Amino acid sequence: MATGGRRGAAAAPLLVAVAALLLGAAGHLYPGEVCPGMDIRNNLTRLHELENCSVIEGHLQILLMFKTRPEDFRDLSFPKLIMITDYLLLFRVYGLESLKDLFPNLTVIRGSRLFFNYALVIFEMVHLKELGLYNLMNITRGSVRIEKNNELCYLATIDWSRILDSVEDNYIVLNKDDNEECGDICPGTAKGKTNCPATVINGQFVERCWTHSHCQKVCPTICKSHGCTAEGLCCHSECLGNCSQPDDPTKCVACRNFYLDGRCVETCPPPYYHFQDWRCVNFSFCQDLHHKCKNSRRQGCHQYVIHNNKCIPECPSGYTMNSSNLLCTPCLGPCPKVCHLLEGEKTIDSVTSAQELRGCTVINGSLIINIRGGNNLAAELEANLGLIEEISGYLKIRRSYALVSLSFFRKLRLIRGETLEIGNYSFYALDNQNLRQLWDWSKHNLTITQGKLFFHYNPKLCLSEIHKMEEVSGTKGRQERNDIALKTNGDQASCENELLKFSYIRTSFDKI
């Protein structure tokens, strides 16, 4: 039985969820670079991206490699990797027998973001014989899940209580170790020597080791999670996991709180800001991140802002960003909400898709409305799209047979046209069989910064309504002859009103 693990408890099935942008060198404390989270699957090609990484700022997932063999891993080693800020997950990587050479110096898994409450997941690794993470000293947050690894031993010899604050939620089941077939031998045991430290858990006094050649490092209890030197002297209180010299914040392997210019500090002093819960960055760093993602459509890219001495992905609820200094300031009234469309555009074809934009005031991208039916549609669209004030790209209304009016965009005031449909149009209306009105132009103002209007096959939309939009939106004169079809717009509506004058002759039985 794995020490510190839980057996036999019912657990939810383990679901495996399925960018080499360097964020800056980590400095003297770390020998390499800070790398983003990685999802490495199918083959070993991307694994080489770990070569210079000291910190993975995010998670590391290595999974679904069915053609790899043990010899493929023999020359692979990433000794610079010290810390993973989120979680480490391995799933069905064939041929991998140990992690001792792959990650010989991995010391800390912070667990800032977890995989279903777990910071370390080893699942269905069919050839893994031992973990071998002999320098792993601290899992700051989260638990361990090690399950269905039929060859995995050296679990009962690990004292997880020396690595985690609590072992109650560890789930370590259905491994070879369960069948008591392992016969784990710690260093020196074969020669009758006791080389590794022994600890007591559940009444068992057991030597602690990761492999037959690597003991588990056990520091004096007084050192807590700070770690200790090879001689057993406690590291500085700002260290986490390990250090090369005692009581020196510049000799830590990793930091308990924050890293700044080669030393570990309790908090980031001005003019620095907390970033990702582990390091200090200056304003320029946060500003660069903001600008890199301002026009990016890459998933996970955030326009970072500053709030409460932190550089964070977005302002919290009730705050909006001051564009001059990136500071989050309290909103006066309802907060603006910028919604970034991942692929640059979004099609609204149902109430469900409209709900995804609920509360958005600025759309960074283009909207395509293609709704053919739905219950209580006008009210639903207004509830979900009615706060949109600005669209950076274009607005396209296409084959939306259920629409009679666009009044559900009740606050839309600006279409920038930074991206144009077919390279020309910022407003595009095609084949809307029941569209009769755009907006009530006596109450609604709309500016279209650039781009043209396109109207074709809107049989109940009168040309007068379209011409009014040209005047109000500032697009009059931009359109070419064929942009607004004269014969297919309003051709099934009563669009022309003329005053009919009647004269009559009164007659009676005795007068003409």
Rank of each mutant, 00 (worst) to 15 (best):
H28W: 11
L29S: 08
P31V: 12
P31R: 12
G32A: 05
V34P: 07
P36K: 15
P36W: 09
P36V: 03
M38Y: 09
I40K: 00
R41T: 00
N42P: 00
N42M: 00
N43V: 10
L44C: 11
T45K: 12
L47P: 02
H48L: 10
H48R: 06
H48P: 05
E49Q: 08
E49N: 14
L50P: 00
L50K: 00
L50W: 02
N52W: 10
C53V: 01
I56Q: 02
G58M: 00
L60M: 05
M65T: 07
M65F: 02
F66P: 01
T68M: 06
T68R: 06
D72C: 14
D72A: 03
F73I: 05
R74D: 09
F78C: 03
F78V: 04
P79K: 07
I82E: 12
I82P: 00
T85L: 10
T85S: 10
T85Q: 13
L88I: 12
L88N: 01
L90A: 14
F91V: 01
V93H: 13
L96H: 00
L96V: 05
S98Y: 02
L99F: 07
K100T: 09
K100F: 13
P104C: 01
N105S: 11
T107W: 04
R110P: 01
G111I: 00
S112F: 08
L114Q: 04
A119E: 00
A119H: 00
V121G: 00
F123I: 00
E124N: 00
M125G: 00
V126G: 00
K129R: 10
E130Y: 13
E130L: 03
G132D: 06
L133S: 07
N135K: 09
N135V: 02
N135P: 02
L136S: 03
I139A: 01
S143C: 08
R145N: 01
R145S: 03
I146S: 01
E147S: 02
K148I: 01
N150C: 03
N150D: 01
L152Q: 03
A156Y: 15
T157Y: 06
I158K: 02
D159C: 05
D159V: 01
W160F: 07
R162D: 05
R162Y: 14
R162N: 14
R162A: 12
I163D: 01
S166G: 08
E168R: 12
D169C: 05
D169K: 09
N170A: 11
N170D: 08
N170V: 13
I172S: 10
K176G: 06
N179S: 06
E180P: 10
E180V: 10
E180Q: 15
E181R: 01
G183L: 15
G183S: 14
D184G: 15
I185E: 07
C186Y: 09
T189G: 09
T189S: 09
A190Q: 09
K193Q: 15
K193V: 06
T194W: 02
T194P: 08
T194H: 13
N195Y: 15
N195V: 14
N195M: 10
C196Y: 01
P197E: 12
A198Q: 04
A198Y: 04
V200Q: 07
V200T: 07
I201F: 12
I201R: 07
I201S: 06
I201D: 06
N202F: 07
G203Q: 10
Q204T: 01
F205H: 11
V206A: 06
E207N: 03
E207H: 15
T211R: 03
H212Q: 14
H212W: 09
S213L: 10
H214G: 03
H214Q: 08
C215V: 05
K217Y: 09
V218P: 02
V218T: 09
C219E: 01
P220C: 04
I222Q: 10
C223R: 00
C223K: 01
S225K: 08
C228R: 01
T229N: 09
A230K: 12
E231S: 12
C234N: 01
C235S: 01
C235M: 02
E238N: 13
G241H: 03
G241D: 01
G241C: 08
N242P: 07
N242S: 11
N242C: 06
C243I: 01
C243H: 00
S244N: 05
S244T: 06
S244F: 09
P246F: 11
P246G: 12
D247K: 07
T250R: 12
K251N: 11
V253M: 14
C255A: 02
R256I: 10
N257W: 07
Y259P: 01
Y259A: 14
Y259H: 12
L260P: 03
D261E: 01
R263L: 11
R263M: 13
R263T: 08
V265C: 03
C268Q: 00
C268P: 02
C268T: 02
P271C: 08
P271V: 05
Y272S: 12
Y273H: 13
Y273L: 08
F275Y: 09
F275V: 00
W278R: 00
W278E: 02
W278I: 00
F283Q: 10
F283M: 14
S284W: 07
F285D: 06
C286Y: 06
D288S: 11
D288I: 12
L289Y: 08
C293Q: 01
K294Y: 15
N295H: 07
S296A: 13
S296Y: 15
R297F: 07
R297K: 11
R297W: 07
C301D: 05
I306Q: 03
I306R: 05
N308I: 09
N308A: 05
K310V: 10
G318W: 09
G318Q: 15
C328P: 02
T329M: 10
C331N: 04
L332N: 14
G333Q: 15
